[in-house]
């Protein structure tokens, strides 16, 4: 890693500096497009009391679900946390704090965090438990609530291809929250399936420009499928 070259060669280097009590933003939707090796490295490091921001929390035994096994997560900010028995148990036991955030609000909080916008108004959640304690304002006769941006100490991202300046392209719906968390990390770490030389990717096809990326690593991925559904 030097200058514009963001490559690191080990997962240990990729998450160097990650410590107890930090906030980690993770890309992925269900198990699709999750940074599975970076999650495994968080587990290996045994850091604790993490606040994790992700649309979901993986499943039992895979994805972010593995961080629950050693109780590394103190607080989860997510939109949907079903399909995870250990998560449910820790939530009911009071071992885990959860801030449920509507999916679009979560995406926008991350985008805003990365874009230097501290808060924004949205109609989503007005009149529901999500609005409790939040400022309400009327614009053009409609009610909106104030939602705050999210920033992370680390953002962990799964890309498809990148050049070693950290320009990233995602594949299909594995894009999801990845470009948003990439923007909102103080240190953004991207793992990809292929790293190429600068100039090999078409500039107009880049999803995440390298300016957002601090560290880049080549990984091998299991890409587990959560709900394998075939045409009849």
């Amino acid at each position: 890693m030097s200058g514009l070259d963001k490559r690191v060669s080990t997962y240990e280097q990729a998450l160097e500096g990650l410590g107890d009590g930090m906030t980690v933003l993770s890309g992925g939707f269900g198990l699709c497009g999750i940074p599975e090796n970076l999650i495994a490295e968080i587990r290996r490091r045994q850091v604790r009391d993490l606040t994790v921001v992700s649309n979901n929390c993986g499943i039992d035994g895979f994805g972010l679900g593995v961080l629950l096994e050693d109780r590394q997560i103190r607080k989860m900010i997510a939109s949907y946390v079903g399909e995870n028995a250990l998560f449910e148990r820790q939530l009911l036991n009071g071992e885990l704090e959860v801030e449920l955030t509507p999916q679009g609000t979560l995406a926008e909080r991350l985008r805003a965090g990365g874009a230097g916008i501290p808060a924004f108004y949205t109609a989503t959640g007005y009149g529901t438990p999500v609005a409790e304690g939040k400022e309400v304002r009327d614009f053009n006769g409609k009610h909106y609530i104030l939602e705050r941006a999210l920033i992370g100490d680390f953002a962990i991202v799964k890309g498809w291809k990148a050049d070693y300046f950290g320009n990233v392209i995602y594949r299909h719906t594995a894009q999801n929250f990845n470009p948003l968390v990439a923007m909102a990390g103080r240190i953004t770490v991207v793992e990809v399936e292929e790293i190429v030389a600068p100039g090999e990717l078409e500039p107009s096809q880049i999803h995440t420009p390298g300016i957002y990326v601090n560290r880049l690593i080549l990984g091998h991925f299991e890409k587990r499928i959560e709900k394998r559904t075939l045409r009849a």
């Binding site: 649309n55 594995a174 959560e226």
Partner: peptide
């Protein structure tokens, strides 16, 4: 595995589809 719907089922894209981020 990189092609799912909001119900997390595997799916395909039809001709004329587009794919984008969650925001």
């Amino acid at each position: 595995a990189d092609m799912i719907n909001a119900g997390k089922q595997t799916v395909t894209a039809r001709p004329g589809a587009s794919i984008f981020d969650s925001a």
